[in-house]
């Protein structure tokens, strides 16, 4: 009992931390106009969700959540590769990564 009290942080701390990180990511997506930084904020959101899944997995003693986190990392890596390729191709066409310039698809 002594050992439990000493070691375990309450899980709600991890919940609050990952919620704040997720909100910072959402705020960054809305705040910045640079497409690369928007991609980075999406990574931030993915990471906060990963942290939440790992905390639930570790505190419930079941490894399934960590496997999901592994798959989320795989998808995030693929997403970044395709996103940056799109960005390079956009930059080649309009010489800017400002998302306000990319209004051609706007109706």
């Amino acid at each position: 009992m002594e050992q439990l009290e000493q070691h375990a942080n309450p899980q709600s701390w991890y919940l609050v931390l990952s919620t704040i990180l997720f909100s910072i990511g959402v705020m960054g997506v809305l705040f910045r106009r640079n497409a690369i930084i928007i991609l980075m904020c999406i990574e931030l959101m993915l990471n906060s969700v990963n942290l939440l899944l790992v905390s639930f997995s570790a505190y419930s003693g079941n490894s399934d959540g960590q496997v999901f986190v592994f798959f989320i990392m795989v998808v995030a890596a693929a997403e970044v590769a395709v996103g940056l390729a799109l960005l390079v191709s956009i930059y080649r066409n309009v010489a800017s990564t400002d998302i306000d310039v990319l209004s051609k698809l706007k109706w």
Binding site: H7, A8, S12, S23, A58, Y59, S60
Partner: peptide
């Protein structure tokens, strides 16, 4: 958004947990 998420968490409750130090899940 932060406020809404925190309020939603505040009204819920977590299940009983075991200490991550004592398990080998990871």
């Amino acid at each position: 958004l932060l406020l809404v998420l925190l309020a939603a968490m505040h009204s819920g409750s977590l299940p009983g947990y075991i200490s991550p130090d004592l398990t080998d899940t990871g």
